[in-house]
């Protein structure tokens, strides 16, 4: 044990404070302070020019009556429900696919991971070009594919300019971009499953599907839980691809997300108070979803 009054304790105190001083400063100035400030701003109207004006609960009543905010919430939920389950399932599938020692597997893992390291802006641009209604290669590929299968070629679609297809198109791009990230996390989890569990299951005559369902899935469930929580939280914060692929939430606000709505109110309409209210609402939504997950994990996560 350390003697509280000894020189060791004094060194600890001095250096402890010294080394953590920048971080403590940052924590207060860039995190805790702004969080408190942001919550207080929910009760003010502020255009960032004239002094803030106290408005009580006005921002909140406005938020709850704001049809466009509701739309943004639905769109965000649509994005999350469209991208998270699909992304988690596909990346697990990919992890299983690359979880074997064969020649060149490292190259494949690297290729699958490439979209993760490149910026959303750059890949969102090429996907926008992909989806182009007149000259996009996607319409061409679908056309050729249909002909190959002897089907009627589909009519060329204006993927990003059609309110029904714009969000799915953005979801497809986002799933593609995030696959490698979760694949790598799942791969590490798969490699950590004890071999003797598989051997025991094999002795019991379990098929490979049975082994996957009854050995692999339960064994990796803590990691699956982590992946789901992180994907959900980042899904609710989607911004970059929406900004690039669907400026201004077009078409017909079908791609307007919560963070885009916040960005618009804060930095285009200069409504700092209202934007802070949107931010706080977003925080509440993410917190609620995370809590539900934490509560629900008991039923499917095995430690």
């Amino acid at each position: 044990m350390i003697d509280r009054e000894g020189p060791l304790a004094r060194t600890d105190r001095l250096w402890g404070l010294l080394l953590s001083a920048p971080y403590i400063f940052g924590l207060v100035v860039f995190a805790l302070g702004p969080i408190v400030f942001s919550w207080s701003m929910c009760f003010f109207a502020w255009d960032n020019i004239t002094p803030p004006r106290f408005v009580g609960l006005d921002n909140w009543t406005r938020l709850f009556g704001d049809a466009l905010f509701r739309k943004a919430c639905w769109n965000t939920l649509y994005f999350v429900l469209g991208s998270v389950p699909l992304g988690v399932a596909l990346s697990l599938l990919l992890a299983v696919l690359v979880n074997r020692q064969v020649k060149g597997i490292g190259v494949f893992r690297m290729l699958y991971f490439t979209p993760v390291v490149t910026s959303t802006v750059a890949v969102a641009l090429v996907w926008t070009w992909f989806y182009d209604s007149n000259y996009g290669v996607l319409n061409y590929l679908l056309d050729q594919g249909a002909r190959l299968l002897g089907l009627d070629p589909p009519k060329p679609m204006a993927w990003l300019n059609n309110p029904t297809t714009a969000m799915p198109a953005i979801i497809a791009m986002s799933v593609w971009k995030g696959l490698g990230y979760n694949m790598v996390i799942f791969l590490a989890a798969l490699q950590g499953v004890p071999k003797h569990l598989y051997e025991a299951a094999e002795l019991d005559g379990a098929s490979s599907v049975g082994r996957f369902l009854h050995v692999t899935l339960p064994s990796i469930s803590p990691v699956t839980f982590f992946v789901v929580i992180v994907s959900l939280a980042s899904g609710f914060q989607v911004f970059d691809q929406v900004y690039i692929m669907a400026r201004e939430g077009r078409p017909a606000d079908s791609t307007l997300t919560i963070v885009y709505y916040l960005y618009r109110h804060a930095f285009q309409y200069l409504e700092m108070g209202y934007a802070s209210t949107i931010g706080t609402a977003l925080f509440a939504i993410i917190l609620a979803v995370t809590l539900v997950q934490l509560y629900g994990q008991k039923r499917w996560v095995h430690y």
């Binding site: 702004p34 969080i35 914060q237 916040l262 931010g279 977003l282």
Partner: peptide, 9 residues
């Protein structure tokens, strides 16, 4: 806390 909360302050 999502970073959008601290973005404005």
């Amino acid at each position: 806390v999502p970073y959008q909360v601290t973005l404005i302050p």
